[in-house]
Design a protein around this nucleic acid. Structure first.
Lengths: 353, 353
DNA sequence: TAGTTTAGTCGAATCGATTCGATCGAATCG
DNA sequence: CGATTCGATCGAATCGATTCGACTAAACTA
């Protein structure tokens, strides 16, 4: 009404109108320091009249040295990363933990395509959570430490001073594999998560296994190989049901056919089961399937035998580590353990095959 | 090595070491303005020696008036909002569009719990996308306009100058309903998306329908009622398969049983189909089901008859609107249209029922 | 050769708030 | 009553970069 100027009012404007100095106005707004009730009200009234919406976050964050923003780096595009409930749960955990210091999450993609995650350099970040980003990880971390921005890595090879939120991938998978061996299985197939950022699909060769850049997949593979050293494997191009279907078809049409399949995620396992159904195989009578993650796969009728990992807790732990780092502490790495869930998708192999 | 001081180097430090003024150093870094190659190299060398990682985003954004951050407001917690692929697709669209101006996404939750979305006030945002946030919407928008931060609303009642990305919810649902009527259906049930931020589950009463705060649900409901004015309805507490299952059970155990169900989302539809299977009903012979969204529901064996909406495009459009607003333009609202997909979950009702 | 352009550099103001130390009046205390 | 606190307020420095106008020297035009 009273002359909308193009420029927004500043705290000084408010102070001028309230008849006090900017410093006092600042104190009145932030609640820090002693300010008389009369003055505070005058300032607030002036602010209302001028349609002043509170201090500019940019200026405030420059002065305070904090922006209240925590970055989350994923190396897919958004739609890919969030197809897996595990990632969503982790993100949720992070969000919850850092919400306690009123921070918000900045979603950053460090796609294989873009050479540098431009935003990592240019965003006003207080801290960063790296979601097991394979290749770009090293570069990202060195940049962050140079900037003095604390970082936490979830399942990835972190550097010296970077706390890591880890999972007992190898031991857990071994547990699942041993379960299969105890049931009597000998011919086992493995559906492997992507081993390289290019997400190439295809049979698992020694060469590919050796040059893997993704810790999670490698560790789970090692766990399976601990029990079944020469199990055949197929690498999927992502943790999706469709990929499990493709991989399952491939493994199940080989001769001799495996009697059990270890999938590195529940979504992959669900796909494998679908493939088995397609081929007229019954689960678990004709084929045992073990998954990983312990997520509810919508639409899967089976109670999946799997390794339940605490995804949300992992995210939460990452968030809490960040909160503590911002408070000046030096949290140490944490390793979470998965628990074996004996579902209805594993059984002894058929005697006469 | 050479004395790690606690404070990070600033551009002035670099300039001092390079033997030039801060202004020149700034030019050398940003690439703006004429700088001799010799000077540029000196500056870059000095930066490297001092482990200077580039200008501080906080200071830069204060001066430039831009932070490169676009907020996305969802009114659930992260894990809820991203269970529906539609939301993920939209987010992906936004992310893609604003990626072109090298902006990143800040995830903000305006949960029903927190009185004020604290981050909306305190985050350095250039613009905001509001994901059809029911109640908090008005307050959020007024706060943003006061701040001078441009906003775009996806499926929600935006204010005067706020562009809206809309969908033909009513017309599309009517199309689906008419399809059912043409097949001969008369007793139709509706599974309704949450009508209020409290996400209360239960039978659809006129009262609840009238006091709805969520545009999408209301519009789709109206479309169904255009064709079947007195169809029974059940309100779900979210767009999840489980909720569809619960709602489906309720609708399908009523007498007389409906011969068709219109679900307001594909996930709900999948749940309804599951409920039908539980009750020994065949789809589409005993029950026709129409969904909405056109997402692939993992694990659903049916080719769902549904209304396919361009989720990703909607997000993209929102992102593009933001880009244009940041460029000083005034993009107008856009309404997207859904296309009817005749799948295999609808058929004429059984003659003798 | 005088006059004009131009590339390169610099100084200083600016973005908008926060914060430390100083100040001043009033109230308290010995 | 003089000295000491304490509460309220203000001034000025600061956060770290960007940017505009000014200035210098070299190159070019007539």
């Amino acid at each position: 009404m009273d002359g909308d100027t193009i420029t927004r009012p500043t705290l000084s404007d408010v102070a001028a109108r309230a008849g006090c100095s900017p410093s006092t106005a600042s104190l009145a707004f932030s609640g820090t320091g002693p300010v008389s009730d009369a003055t505070r009200e005058k300032v607030l009234a002036a602010a209302k009249e001028l349609h002043y919406a509170g201090p500019d976050p940019r200026a405030r964050s420059l002065r305070r040295g904090r922006s209240g923003i925590v970055g989350v780096v994923i190396d897919d595009r958004v739609s890919e990363a969030f197809r897996d409930p595990v990632n969503i749960a982790m993100l949720d955990g992070v969000s919850e933990a850092i919400g306690e210091i009123d921070a918000a999450l900045l979603l950053l993609t460090a796609g294989a395509g873009s050479d540098k995650p431009v935003s990592l350099e240019t965003a006003p970040l207080d801290a960063v959570v790296l979601f097991g980003c394979s290749t770009t990880l090293e570069r990202s971390i060195s940049m962050l430490t140079q900037r003095g921005i604390p970082a936490v890595v979830i399942e990835g090879d972190a550097g010296e001073n970077v706390p890591e939120i880890a999972l007992d991938n190898r031991e857990a998978t071994r547990l699942g594999a041993e379960h299969l061996r105890e049931l009597g299985h000998e011919r086992v197939g493995i559906v492997v998560l992507p081993l390289a950022p290019d997400r190439a699909r295809g049979a698992l060769t020694e060469e590919r296994a050796a040059s893997s850049a993704v810790a999670t997949a490698t560790e789970r593979l090692a766990g399976a190989r601990d029990v079944f050293p020469d199990a055949a494997g197929v690498v999927a191009s992502g943790s999706y049901l469709d990929e499990g279907l493709i991989a399952g078809r491939e493994l199940l049409t080989a001769t001799p056919r495996p009697t059990a399949i270890i999938a590195q995620s529940d979504l992959l396992a669900a796909g494998v089961i679908r493939a088995a159904e397609e081929l007229g195989l019954r689960v678990p009578e004709d084929l045992s399937v073990v998954g990983f993650d312990g997520v509810r796969v919508d639409g899967l009728d089976y109670d999946l035998t799997t390794l339940v990992q605490p995804s949300q807790a992992k995210g939460r732990a990452a968030g809490e580590a960040i909160v503590r780092m911002l408070a000046g502490e030096h949290p140490s790495s944490v390793t979470f353990t998965s628990t074996f869930h004996r579902g209805a998708t594993t059984a002894p192999p058929r005697v006469a095959d």
